[in-house]
Amino acid sequence: MECTVIAETSGNSIHPITAQLVGAASSLGATPIVVVPGGAGAEEAASIDGVSKVISVVGDCFSTFDSGAWASAIASQCSGVVIAGATPIGREVASRVAAKKGIPIIQDATDLAPGITITRPIYSGKAVETSTVSGDCVITLRANAFDAAGSDGSASVNVVDQSADISIAVKEAISKASERLDVSEADIIISGGRGIGQKENFSHLEEVADIIGAAVGASRAVVDEWGMPHSMQVGQTGKTVTPSLYIAVGISGAIQHLAGMRSSKYIVAINKDPDAPIFGVADYGIVATWEEAVPALKSALAAL
């Protein structure tokens, strides 16, 4: 099966998802060509197991992200089944490559089987769709859903100089706002309750939040007693939240708190009391003191 992987780059190197894309292609029985937009990390891509060839597409157009220009520059190198990462850049470039070639695109696959049968979550994970594609197509893959290929390969690298017109000009960079995400819009929330002892200890939760781009929430007890902002409060009289991941630290799980977070997709509870009701709704419960568990969480997340 003819197959092309569009590599995801990150700064001057290859993003780890690229090895997962190659792994997925291999599982379909393909030995894909890897196209590296802009060329960064092409040598690294060549070392991924199962790659037949790396095409490093270089040109001025890669200095700015313009999916139209990028797709123009790489489309002619992409043939057969095209696989990219379901990252913001991957999705957009892949969409334009598909449209340029007049072939369908299926985004955010979590499983592939020869045929090609594609599984992907729809309705934000409330249902799963299985579909079959017979001809050429573009598929983007969810990060961490596929096993990465190894790194013992030694494919050749062809450099192609391909220019394309950029229609987007960066006028001004705005550095990351230091403002913390609001709990009502965050995809990951780490919340603290009375069990963490005192208001100052929220700084530990904030450090964890910074690593994974989470919002910091709080139970009503600490909002009332320690004067935390009401906007942080999760629960019956606070915000009702439905993030993908909710981490409750030192929260016993009063019914009013559960009312605000029990629809979260995954719940992690950290509490030293093994009988705390929060464990009743937790997918992963950790019976431990926050003083031990939170630093461990920080280092485990930082190591990802």
């Binding site: 999916s67 139209g68 999705r91 957009e92 892949a94 334009r96």
Partner: peptide, 17 residues
């Protein structure tokens, strides 16, 4: 939850995105 339509339509009508 795909996100293909905006860039795809842009490609078809020759627009920036």
């Amino acid at each position: 939850n795909a996100g293909s339509t905006g860039p795809g339509v842009a490609e078809l009508i020759g627009a920036s995105c």
